[in-house]
């Protein structure tokens, strides 16, 4: 998929664990893992909003478009 989720990079920058972020964003750790491992097919605006709020970043910091080779 050309959209890459750079959640782990932002989490490392903010020094926040997956469990803590999942709790703050109010999603299950399993769903956060799906998101982190680029397995997700779609992200709700409400989830993205909560992630950006908790990580104090912009959607572009978490999502990246990479051209298909």
């Amino acid at each position: 998929m050309p959209i890459v989720v750079n959640l782990d990079v932002m989490m490392a920058k903010r020094k926040i664990s997956a469990g803590e972020l999942a709790e703050r964003v109010d999603i299950t750790p399993a769903n956060l893992s799906i998101l982190k491992n680029n397995k997700a097919k779609a992200v709700r605006f409400s989830t993205l909003e909560a992630i950006c709020r908790e990580l104090d970043c912009q959607p572009g910091d978490v999502l990246e478009y990479v051209k298909d080779e």
Partner: peptide
């Protein structure tokens, strides 16, 4: 269903 399951 898959799309729904993988929508976070």
């Amino acid at each position: 269903r898959e799309e729904n399951d993988y929508t976070i």
